[in-house]
């Protein structure tokens, strides 16, 4: 009798073990890639130039959020439908490629990235699904990896490919997600389809005025004594920085979409 009980107990422990390890396998969440973190060198560093930001591990969506996914969101959240959204949260071009509130129409393929989306809309979507927008540091950490390297920023070909995409005119109908190779982290379309919102886009402090473009004006921005960029060869990073610094939270454009990020489970698994 004793032995049998012991066996059963052992079996039970074994079961629990197996189940726990299965729960480990469930992470990262579906359609998200685990980014094990790393060091990110901001384009415009701190007051000291060679600053590196330590990025903690996080999850990021493998794909940009699609029209079909965003449609599901607005169905459940009517105040984010085209005709209901408040101007403070999205300008008049919000979802302008859609036929109407609840139909995509021919200019918005279900499986293409949703664009004409404001920061607020992207943020609301993320929060609705228990996620958040990635920070600039997180996004750039993922974006600097090429197909094979975690850091492709020193690879001239990689930089060239991105620049070629930046220089191509935007297609009227944006192609579907996932048709190009995945990068080192298993993330698709971070370059090549649309630009993406970040949670702290407002941390890019460049003035839009021409006289300010050569540097940061002390009187417009406090604390930005240093204007030296960390990597003069990384033109795409300059372009993204400039683009971000020109954005406002209710802006929408036809080449700006988003993907979500998520903190790792607090238990650390």
């Amino acid at each position: 009798m004793k032995r049998t009980t012991k066996n059963i107990l052992l079996l039970l422990l074994f079961c629990i073990n197996v189940l726990y390890s299965q729960s480990d396998k469930i992470n990262p969440p579906n359609e998200m890639a685990m980014i094990s973190g790393g060091l990110y060198t901001p384009l415009y560093g701190d007051k000291n130039n060679d600053v590196k930001i330590k990025v903690a591990p996080f999850y990021i969506d493998k794909y940009p959020v699609t029209n079909a996914q965003f449609l599901e969101f607005v169905k459940a959240n009517p105040r984010w439908q085209k005709s209901n959204v408040k101007k403070l949260f999205a300008d008049k071009n919000y979802l302008s490629q859609w036929k109407n509130d609840l139909e995509l129409g021919k200019n918005a393929l279900p499986n293409s990235p949703v664009t004409n989306i404001s920061w607020f809309a992207a943020k609301a979507y993320s929060e609705y699904y228990g996620k958040r927008l990635p920070s600039v540091s997180e996004w750039e950490l993922v974006a600097k990896s090429s197909l094979t390297l975690a850091d492709g920023s020193k690879d001239p070909n990689f930089i060239k490919q991105i620049l070629e995409w930046y220089s191509r005119p935007m297609q009227e109908v944006i192609p579907a997600i996932g048709k190009r190779g995945k990068n080192y982290w298993g993330v698709y379309d971070i370059h090549g389809l649309v630009w993406e919102w970040t949670s702290d886009f407002f941390s890019s402090l460049v003035t839009g005025e021409s006289r300010g473009d050569s540097g940061l004006e002390r009187n417009l921005f406090c604390g930005s004594g240093s204007v030296n960029a960390s990597d003069f060869k990384n033109y795409p990073a300059f372009m993204r920085f400039a683009f971000r610094s020109s954005l406002k939270a209710n802006y929408t454009t036809n080449n700006l979409g988003f993907r979500c990020a998520k903190d790792l489970n607090k238990k650390g698994n």
Binding site: F202, S204, G223
Partner: peptide
């Protein structure tokens, strides 16, 4: 803070030393 900054077009960034760069 970030939502308010975002609607105002107010840019800010926390520096490593704990201070902030920000628009005026």
């Amino acid at each position: 803070i970030s939502e308010l900054a975002a609607v105002l077009g107010f840019k800010y960034k926390k520096e490593q030393d704990g201070s902030f760069s920000h628009s005026n």
